[in-house]
Computed example of a mutant assay.
Amino acid sequence: MGDRVQVRVSPVTVFQVLEVNGDEVVVMAEGDAPGRYPYTYRAEQLIPASNEPPE
């Protein structure tokens, strides 16, 4: 938990992993992003985040 990931097809927002349930990953956008609430993705839809964490 706590890993930083992005959605493979549109790697704009960085998410923090909250929970992993088999192939499902629950994530939430970092920072004060609008619509910031938990989302569920399949693990294959996510990639490691490529930018540095916010300070």
Score class of each variant (00 low, 15 high):
38 P>Q: 02
13 T>K: 15
12 V>S: 12
43 A>H: 05
55 E>T: 06
49 A>W: 02
18 L>F: 06
41 Y>A: 04
45 Q>A: 13
48 P>K: 01
50 S>Q: 13
27 V>D: 06
7 V>G: 06
48 P>F: 09
1 M>V: 13
16 Q>S: 12
13 T>V: 14
28 M>L: 11
6 Q>L: 07
50 S>F: 12
45 Q>W: 14
19 E>H: 14
33 A>T: 04
3 D>I: 05
28 M>Q: 11
42 R>G: 10
46 L>F: 06
44 E>V: 01
17 V>Y: 05
17 V>S: 03
12 V>E: 15
17 V>F: 06
19 E>T: 10
15 F>S: 01
14 V>M: 10
45 Q>C: 03
47 I>K: 03
35 G>R: 08
26 V>M: 06
24 E>C: 11
13 T>L: 15
21 N>T: 14
26 V>E: 12
30 E>P: 05
5 V>D: 03
38 P>C: 01
46 L>A: 02
51 N>T: 15
5 V>I: 07
44 E>G: 08
31 G>N: 04
40 T>H: 06
24 E>I: 11
7 V>L: 13
37 Y>C: 04
31 G>T: 01
29 A>N: 00
10 S>Y: 15
44 E>P: 00
22 G>I: 10
3 D>C: 00
23 D>K: 14
5 V>M: 05
53 P>R: 01
32 D>S: 07
19 E>A: 14
47 I>T: 04
17 V>W: 06
22 G>N: 03
6 Q>P: 07
43 A>L: 09
28 M>G: 07
46 L>S: 07
46 L>Q: 00
15 F>Q: 02
42 R>F: 12
27 V>K: 00
9 V>K: 15
3 D>K: 08
18 L>Y: 01
25 V>M: 08
15 F>M: 02
35 G>C: 01
4 R>Y: 09
22 G>W: 10
3 D>S: 05
36 R>K: 01
14 V>I: 12
39 Y>D: 00
24 E>M: 12
7 V>H: 10
55 E>F: 11
42 R>P: 01
14 V>P: 08
48 P>V: 02
32 D>V: 10
50 S>Y: 11
34 P>Y: 05
17 V>C: 04
29 A>P: 05
25 V>P: 07
2 G>Y: 04
43 A>E: 12
48 P>I: 00
37 Y>H: 13
10 S>P: 03
38 P>W: 06
21 N>E: 15
46 L>C: 03
24 E>D: 15
54 P>Y: 05
22 G>T: 09
44 E>F: 10
21 N>W: 07
10 S>G: 11
